[in-house]
Design a protein around this nucleic acid. Sequence first.
DNA 1: TAGATTGTTAATCGATTAACAATC
DNA 2: TAGATTGTTAATCGATTAACAATC
Lengths: 218, 218
Amino acid sequence: MINMAKRENISMSVIRRLPRYYRFLNHLKNKGINRISSKELSAKMGFTASQIRQDLNCFGGFGQQGYGYIVEQLCDEIGNILGVSNGYKCILIGAGNLGQAIASHLSFEAQGFHLTGIFDNDPKKIGTNLNGLVIRDTAELESFCKETQPVMAVLCIPRAAVERLSDQLYAMGIRNFWNFSHYDIAMKYHDAIVENVHLNDSLMTLCYRISDQNSQKP
Amino acid sequence: MINMAKRENISMSVIRRLPRYYRFLNHLKNKGINRISSKELSAKMGFTASQIRQDLNCFGGFGQQGYGYIVEQLCDEIGNILGVSNGYKCILIGAGNLGQAIASHLSFEAQGFHLTGIFDNDPKKIGTNLNGLVIRDTAELESFCKETQPVMAVLCIPRAAVERLSDQLYAMGIRNFWNFSHYDIAMKYHDAIVENVHLNDSLMTLCYRISDQNSQKP
DNA sequence: TAGATTGTTAATCGATTAACAATC
DNA sequence: TAGATTGTTAATCGATTAACAATC
């Protein structure tokens, strides 16, 4: 809705850098810094100034020639582009350690989403409170979704459970997933948006890099 | 150590795909599948067959012409490349929700690392048990590291705490970090390997993609 | 042997960087 | 105005895909 003028097929490489810009600019804004040039930002963030200008200009000309960018304005602009105040309704499935961590994360820090329901199938957990929300029985999923129409589901359940549940969620109209399981859900649905957080993959990558560095030493 | 013959400056794009290969091949192996061609794997994983062959050949010729790859052999080979049985000693700092989730994750699922210590500065947590390890006072960090020489540190603490602690960890010889904070630690040390998991960034990316798709609908 | 599929080289595509005219 | 820095086009670099000879 906002400034869609220029936007057209933004590449994933650019999209993945946006939150980083937002993070840094927010930090500068809170520190009371007013103005910044792409060159200065480049030094702070480790991107080239050229890339920063290139990235920003996918969405519009936010700077002033000869002057640079106004931190607060640019920050808000990127916030809007990201949709930090969209408040998309979402549900979280799986209230284990990870689910609990994500739930508190979602309530306190994250923006752009509004957590409306938490589900688990452990009788010990059902009915208890987590960050101001009562944990519901997975059996209630269908009625709950019919009523509240969540847009996104956070999947903090094991692989096998996702294989079972994802079809149900899809059938209920959910097309967006934040997936923490090892299951590659994106292969299944052509019109779903899936953001994966594969912690194991991340850790293995680190392991490779450590091994690799060690083997390159004399 | 193993098959370093071909390996030379592997790109991050390739490295990030390795755990995914490992995951899929492991799954096939467990299902008792013996043989697979790059074409079949391509259909399952959503990479092109060409890319799969290209990737694997960074490390060696693991296949047989006219036949394909032996699943178990290829899986083990990639496991070795990743270093899944290296058992690098590591410590975890921050036993909040996320830290707890990661600790159980590390003990049960992840490979390549061995968690030897957990630290927090909350008196309520210190001394309690988490996944078979006692939570220690952050004040003991130095003596503990001198004694056990961990190679990697998992950072499950807030940004401000990382700013303070990272220098200490670096001074104690730790050069590898699995960083869950919003602080970009990699900018600080030229010789550190940092694997970031920025959950907020991931979530914001998802938010952007949802907004973007909605705005492109009629 | 014929068919299949690899390993590898060449072609294409996309992303990053450099350069510079426009302009505040 | 002169200096600075953007927005944007062109050049470079790297990653992916296609093609095919080698060979099981």
